[in-house]
Design a protein around this nucleic acid. Structure first.
Lengths: 202, 202
DNA sequence: CACACAATAGTACGAACGTTCGTTAACTGC
DNA sequence: GCAGTTAACGAACGTTCGTACTATTGTGTG
């Protein structure tokens, strides 16, 4: 029972890395088994079907994202510091290259499954909603703390922040433009400045 | 010589539609032939290889984009009007559903090929560079016309505009959120306002 | 140490993949 | 209206896909 779980997570981590390059749909059991130097059938036995493998791979990526982006941001002070930490962690996640050689798996899956109904898409949408909710909540807190104007629309700001991250991913991954990271930082600061509360600041 | 060209473009248009749903990599000759009610071999004869089909499909989509987004925007007055037209055409392109049921093929391909070297990626990157250049040029003109501040960085603004479109595509396609379109409009106006030149306006 | 069972390997399957071939049907230019 | 060209077809290639079985190895426990 122990060995099984162990190799299963080993498989899933490799699956996340491979899927980040070829997509969740392009992920094949054969090639995954080859990369892990194990038999196709042996690997397949861990998952009842390919869709199961895809779901668990996506969930693994989501967990990883939560642990590396959202969770550590919560350790920062409420308001703008936390929002900035979240954004900066997110950019670091986008540019990491060690175990996500093909960029963010979730962002890739978003485009892959935007009109491919099924369990994978449902899980993906749920994750995106959660992330957007967390972002909006961080913004709302920043408003309550008096860092941002009360008239700031959290969802509008969330939308625009998300756009900056998407553009960064695009420029960094496809065009190989490292300046995208500073552009993202500039865009964030300009956005914050536009919504910053008048009297006290942070 | 005439009939051939005719069915070839017929094939390519259908290929653009299909690839917008399943991606350029997921595009298979068999399923494409089935949708066109013709034989796999008959279809294949029009293209020497699958990569050729992918390249021509992408090029077809790029041409379509140019004709529907970039080209009509040039008919508007230089400066902000043209920039606004470009943006609005672009949003219309993103939300169109008749012959691009799966969203923008180029945006999907950007994620699919961001680390998959080859001719397809090269063509894609070239197209993206051209688009970004056109956007930056429109912004520069708006600066020269006195609509935007002289200190505005065209490339930074291009980056942020692109991010808004990406976020719109994401929210509209994956989350099915129609409000994304107004959010995009609001974001654009706020962005313009932040960079608008002081004295004369448009 | 041995037994029980979990974990992996092996083999085989039907289907779909991209591609090649030879042949037939349809068009085009004189 | 015939000759020559081009477009489309059906069949088959070898490979890979996901999945189903059976057999063998390995591990943990009494």
């Amino acid at each position: 029972m122990r060995k099984g779980e162990q190799t299963r997570t080993l498989i899933l981590n490799e699956a996340v890395a491979l899927a980040s390059q070829v997509g969740l749909e392009g992920l094949s059991i054969g090639s995954l088994a080859e990369r892990l130097a194990m038999s196709k059938s042996g690997l397949f036995a861990h998952f009842g079907s390919k869709e199961d493998l895809q779901l668990l791979t996506l969930k693994q990526a989501q967990t990883l994202f939560f642990e590396e982006v959202l969770s550590p941001a919560l350790k920062h002070a409420r308001g703008l510091p936390r929002l900035r930490a979240l954004f900066s962690n997110w950019l670091a996640w986008v540019k990491r290259n060690d175990d996500l050689p093909g960029g963010c798996l979730m962002l890739a899956a978003c485009v892959e499954y935007d009109d491919r109904p099924g369990a994978v898409r449902d899980l993906l949408v749920a994750g995106q909603r959660e992330l957007r909710g967390a972002l909006a909540k961080a913004i709302r807190i920043a408003i309550d703390e008096g860092h941002l104007k009360p008239r700031t629309d959290p969802w509008q700001l969330t939308f625009e922040l998300f756009g900056i991250v998407l553009a960064t991913h695009h420029d960094f991954r496809l065009l190989g433009d490292a300046r995208a990271l500073e552009r993202a930082g500039d865009a964030l600061e300009r956005l914050i400045e536009a919504h910053r509360a008048a009297a006290p600041s942070a």
